[in-house]
Design a protein around this nucleic acid. Structure first.
Lengths: 186, 186
DNA sequence: ATAAACATACCATCTGGACGGTTTCTTTGT
DNA sequence: ACAAAGAAACCGTCCAGATGGTATGTTTAT
């Protein structure tokens, strides 16, 4: 009977640990390299214990992604709150958030999960919902076609960052995108 | 002794068949769902035969990707040849090619390979090389920062298409991007 | 005869679970 | 206050199958 069995239960902490270790492992091995056994071992619980919290691998990955979206949401809310201008506020926040993710680089769980959502229909769905809700919420300030182009360009930069074909002058590019958002009437 | 063994050898045809079936399988199952045994069976050869042509899974995937880049290259060359204007010709071709890939939809080997390159360092490297060569070749006509933004936006649209968060008015968006490429001095 | 192309058999490892058992915590009853 | 019962949290083991190979044998082409 292992020592590990004799311990005080702290389900919230175990769950958090599992998610953190899953994120850490995904950064190192890519999401395809994340196995249930690997996460469980890294978090110091058994696979059975992990499966208590996350009944399948898909549930674990979705929980990781939900965490990621929540963090992105917070970032964007902060950026909008700090922005002095209403027109284009979401688009500016979006550009900044995408550049921030690129700043961190390939070796981050944001990058890993960003890519993961591309390969998983369910994660794509969650993203599509998130984006639709955000666009709906910011319809009054961010619906101009020019802003749409800018947001796509921000996605493209995010992709380029991930692909490590980074823009030669990133700061200038960011300024250019932000500048456009300020010149668009709502 | 299987019947398959008693047949005329046609290595070029077998290789082509392997690549085609690999592409087909990747569309249906995603690239993570493509196994050596699966490809071999679909192509009507044994795994041993497959491994003769492609000594590892990585080599097979890179061959698929090289095929994809070759096809993209041809598309872009055709688009440029048909373009009446020199300034921004590569960017226009690039926008068109990205929209074409989006037109086909998620269920295509282009989409699958596009995503695959995001997850594989070697494929990312091949993409980065391809892009760098193209940008170098078109430096005289396509180096303006505005065109860079447009190309990023095209990438973002490609990503959105893949995510199935498609632009509401795609034709208009395409025109808008193309129009910008025509208004940029070289 | 030799090499290329392909087939067949085998390998070790890993995977996502399923499942029964054990421990800890919470609730209920006295 | 204490004990018993039930539920939640976790442990440890087992499973069947799949994986990317490796090794050896057979067939075809030159």
């Amino acid at each position: 009977m292992a020592l590990a069995h004799h311990r005080k239960k702290d389900p919230a902490q175990v769950r958090r640990q599992l998610l953190d270790q899953a994120a850490r492992l995904s950064v190192r091995e890519g999401l395809a390299g994340v196995s249930l056994q690997g996460v469980a071992a890294a978090a110091g619980v058994t696979k059975g214990g992990l499966l208590h919290h996350f009944p399948s691998k898909q549930v674990l990955i979705e929980a990781m992604f939900t965490d990621f979206l929540a963090a992105l949401d917070r970032d964007i809310d902060e950026l909008i709150a700090a922005d002095g201008e209403r027109p284009g506020c979401f688009s500016r926040a979006y550009v900044e958030a995408m550049f921030r993710q690129g700043d961190v680089g390939v070796d981050s769980s944001c990058a890993v999960l960003g890519i993961a959502m591309l390969t998983d229909p369910r994660l794509r769905e969650l993203w599509a919902k998130w984006l639709a809700a955000r666009l709906d919420r910011h319809r009054a300030t961010d619906s101009a076609p020019e802003l749409e182009v800018i947001r796509y360009a921000a996605d493209g930069v995010w992709l380029a960052d991930f692909m490590e074909v980074r823009p030669a002058n990133r700061a200038e590019l960011r300024n250019r995108l932000i500048t456009v958002t300020r010149s668009v009437p709502s």
